[in-house]
């Protein structure tokens, strides 16, 4: 969005209409990783995490401000019983290291943005 705004400033008012048209196109399903619909390309399992871990912290932590590395490490520790769990060990054991990495990367990028 900010990029679109910058483009219009650079190119001048004559292309404003085209810019907004392009912006509209970017929001269609043709844009597979659009921030507004990042769930479309989410790795298996990732979107379900947001049922408990919302954009804001509650008694349960938000994932929005964690790095991919932080999330991946936490999932690995729960998976390998190296961290004291209540529930997360039972979920983490359902995913391989590779799947967990993909989930961690996706969550780090999108957990705070209602993907």
């Amino acid at each position: 969005m900010t990029m679109a705004g910058r483009a219009s400033t650079v190119l001048g008012a004559s292309v404003l209409a085209l810019v907004s048209l392009a912006g509209a196109l970017a929001q269609t399903p043709a844009a597979p990783t659009s921030g507004a619909a990042a769930f479309i390309t989410s790795p298996p399992g990732a979107t379900a995490c947001l049922g408990c871990h919302g954009p804001e912290a509650t008694a349960l932590p938000s994932l929005a401000r964690l790095s991919a590395r932080d999330i991946e490490t936490a999932l690995a520790e729960f998976r390998e019983d190296k961290r004291e769990p209540t529930l997360m060990n039972r979920i983490a054991k359902g995913f391989t290291a590779e799947e967990s990495k993909a989930i961690a990367e996706w969550l780090a990028a999108h957990a705070g943005k209602a993907p």
């Binding site: 969005m1 900010t2 990029m3 679109a4 483009a7 650079v10 190119l11 292309v15 085209l18 810019v19 048209l21 392009a22 912006g23 196109l25 970017a26 043709a30 844009a31 597979p32 990783t33 659009s34 921030g35």
Partner: peptide, 22 residues
């Protein structure tokens, strides 16, 4: 990732103007 760059804007505009590729 998908925020339209100037190139995308122009490519999109060109495509629209020429053929119904969209």
């Amino acid at each position: 990732i998908s925020a339209p760059t100037r190139r995308h804007v122009l490519a999109g505009a060109a495509a629209l103007a020429v053929t119904p590729m969209v």
